[in-house]
C-alpha cells in the first residue's frame, strides 16, 4: 500500500462524515438563502432575502450588537487571561487550588453560567441584595442595570467570566513549552521586567493568544443561548434574531433566517482566514 492510499484511507471516514454533515448543512442553507425552495414554489434563485435583511434596520442593529458583544468580550477576556496566565505561572501557596478552579470553570456549560450571572447581577439579584444590606441602595431600581441591558454588559461579563480561563490555559501551556530562558536572557542583558515582557514574552505568546481570541470571538458572535437569557428585548443578538426568523410560523421568513446564518458563517470564515494567515506569518 502506498502512502497516498494509506493517507486517503485514514482520512476518508472523517472527511466523508464531516464533509457530508457540514457541507450539506451549509450548502442547503446557502440554497435556501437564495430563495430556492421548490416546495414553496420558489424555483428562481435570487438575492431577495439578502436585500431584505441588509435594508432592515433591525438586522443591522442586531449585527452591530453582536459585533460589539464579540469584540468587547474578546478584548477584555484576552487582557485578563494574559494577566491570569502570568500570575498562575508563578508559584505561590494555594496555586494548586486556584488552578483547579480555573479549570473547573472550563467545564461549566455556558447556559449554566448565564443563568448564574442573571441571579447574581440582576437588579434584584445577589449583588443588589448585598448593596441593599450595606445601605447603598434603597431598592432594586437604584442598582445599576447590568443584565438585559442596552450595552449587553451582562452578556459580555458572562463571556469574560467563561473565556478568561480558556485563554489563560492555552497561554499557560504555551508558557510551559517556552520555559523561562528567553526572559532571563533579556533580564540579564539589562531589560526591565516590562521590557522583557513587552519585547520578548508577548511576541512569543502572540500566535497562541491570537488563535484563542479568534475562537472566543467566533463563539461570542454566534452563540444563541447566552443572549437569549441575558439580552434585551430589542435589538436582539444576531443568532437570536436568526432563530426567531427560522421558527416563525410564516415560512416566507425562512430564506431571511438562512441569509442571516450565511452572514454569520461568512464573518466566521473571514476571521478564520485572517488568523490562519497571521499565525502563518508569525511562525515564519
Amino acid at each position: 500500500m502506498t502512502d497516498r492510499t494509506r493517507i486517503a484511507l485514514l482520512l476518508a471516514p472523517a472527511l466523508l462524515l464531516l464533509g457530508g454533515l457540514f457541507l450539506s448543512g451549509l450548502g442547503l442553507t446557502l440554497l435556501r438563502s437564495f430563495r430556492y425552495f421548490p416546495a414553496l414554489g420558489l424555483t428562481e434563485p435570487d438575492l431577495g432575502a439578502y436585500a431584505a435583511i441588509l435594508t432592515s434596520p433591525g438586522f443591522l442593529r442586531s449585527l452591530g450588537l453582536s459585533l460589539w458583544i464579540a469584540s468587547a468580550s474578546t478584548v477584555l477576556a484576552a487582557i485578563l487571561a494574559l494577566v491570569a496566565a502570568l500570575l498562575l505561572r508563578q508559584s505561590f501557596p494555594g496555586r494548586a487550588l486556584i488552578s483547579f478552579l480555573v479549570q473547573l470553570n472550563l467545564t461549566i456549560p455556558h447556559v449554566v453560567g448565564a443563568i448564574g450571572i442573571l441571579y447574581l447581577l440582576s437588579q434584584s439579584g445577589a449583588f443588589a441584595r448585598l448593596a441593599h444590606a450595606a445601605g447603598l441602595i434603597a431598592g432594586p431600581a437604584d442598582f445599576p442595570v447590568l443584565v438585559n441591558d442596552p450595552f449587553a454588559i451582562g452578556i459580555i461579563l458572562l463571556y469574560v467570566w467563561k473565556e478568561v480561563p480558556f485563554i489563560a490555559l492555552i497561554l499557560l501551556a504555551n508558557l510551559q513549552t517556552l520555559g523561562e530562558d528567553h526572559e532571563s536572557v533579556a533580564r540579564s542583558l539589562g531589560a526591565t521586567r516590562w521590557q522583557a515582557f513587552r519585547h520578548v514574552l508577548l511576541p512569543m505568546l502572540a500566535p497562541g493568544l491570537a488563535a484563542a481570541s479568534a475562537l472566543v470571538f467566533a463563539f461570542a458572535f454566534g452563540a444563541y443561548e447566552v443572549p437569549l437569557i441575558l439580552g434585551q428585548h430589542a435589538p436582539k443578538a444576531l443568532p437570536v434574531l436568526a432563530w426567531q426568523a427560522w421558527t416563525d410560523t410564516d415560512l416566507a421568513t425562512r430564506p431571511e433566517a438562512m441569509a442571516m446564518s450565511i452572514v454569520i458563517a461568512a464573518i466566521g470564515l473571514a476571521l478564520l482566514a485572517l488568523v490562519a494567515r497571521a499565525v502563518r506569518q508569525g511562525g515564519e
Binding site: 434584584s124 431598592g139 438585559n148 442596552p150 428585548h233
Partner: peptide
C-alpha cells in the same frame, strides 16, 4: 426597555 417574557415580569413582581 421591556421584560422579554412573562417570566421576567413575574420575577420583577416577586422581588417587589
Amino acid at each position: 426597555t421591556y421584560p422579554t417574557s412573562i417570566t421576567q415580569l413575574n420575577e420583577l413582581f416577586a422581588n417587589g
